[in-house]
Simulated scan of single mutants.
Amino acid sequence: MTLETSRRHDAQYAREGGCNASLSTAMMDRRSMLSGMAGLAASVVPSRSADANRLIDRSRLIWLRNQAGEEFAGAFRGPEGVPAAEVMERLRHLFRDLRAEALGPLPVALVDVLSLIQAGWRHERPLLLHSGYRTRGTNALLEGAARASLHLEGQAADFGMRGISLPDLAEAASAFSRIFSFMGVGIYRNFVHVDVGPRRMWRGD
């Protein structure tokens, strides 16, 4: 699929409500770069397979479980790389603000990033989502949460993975941040934060 075709697909998805149009425009080139560079993942995360083609296929997969115990495991892009609207809607439900029971936006780029991180462990265990989208009310209740947190825009995820150390997850995320020249990565006591904003790294409490 050409870059132009990919852009048209993502723009169409944005118009259908999967994510807001302004965010989609900003993320199109990032999404294309993620897809085009997926084969580099084997050299920057501890993947057990050196087969780049298999890795590219796996970059379309996500296995995720939220704090309510709800989960999804499967492909979120079709054979041509087009986001599957029905699957993205299911994922948006998993990423909702559980405290407020409120749905928010979910950019495909965030799912792409999480999928590539998970590919380092061959998608053999779920990502445990601590926090995805947050309403302003929920964000205000969380000690230490930034007022302008990217969680408010649905552009961030706090997560862990059972049996994998947080430093290892953070290093995998940081490696992609260095390659792609975007992504915020923070490591906290109980989770790793990843967002699809500007490139930056930090350690929290």
Rank of each mutant, 00 (worst) to 15 (best):
T5M: 13
T5D: 14
S6Y: 06
S6D: 06
S6E: 06
R7F: 10
R7K: 14
R8Y: 03
R8P: 04
R8E: 03
R8N: 05
R8G: 00
H9L: 03
H9W: 01
H9P: 01
D10M: 10
D10Y: 08
D10E: 14
D10K: 05
A11E: 07
A11Y: 08
A11S: 09
Q12I: 09
Q12E: 12
Q12K: 07
Y13W: 11
R15W: 13
E16S: 14
G17N: 02
C19H: 04
C19Q: 00
C19F: 06
N20Y: 05
N20R: 05
A21D: 09
A21S: 11
A21Y: 03
S22P: 07
L23G: 01
S24V: 03
S24K: 01
S24I: 04
S24D: 00
A26C: 08
A26F: 07
A26N: 11
M27A: 08
D29G: 11
D29L: 14
D29M: 11
D29E: 14
R30D: 08
R30V: 11
R30K: 15
R30N: 13
R30E: 09
R31G: 05
R31N: 14
R31H: 12
R31K: 14
S32Y: 08
S32W: 11
S32F: 09
M33E: 10
M33T: 08
L34E: 07
L34C: 11
S35G: 15
S35K: 12
S35T: 14
S35A: 15
M37S: 10
M37P: 00
M37I: 08
A38H: 05
G39E: 08
G39Q: 07
L40Q: 05
L40C: 08
L40V: 05
A41Y: 00
A41D: 02
A42P: 01
S43F: 11
S43D: 14
V44G: 02
V45E: 04
S47D: 02
S47T: 08
R48A: 15
S49G: 06
A50S: 13
D51A: 15
D51G: 10
D51R: 13
D51M: 12
A52Q: 03
R54Y: 04
R54M: 03
R54H: 04
I56D: 04
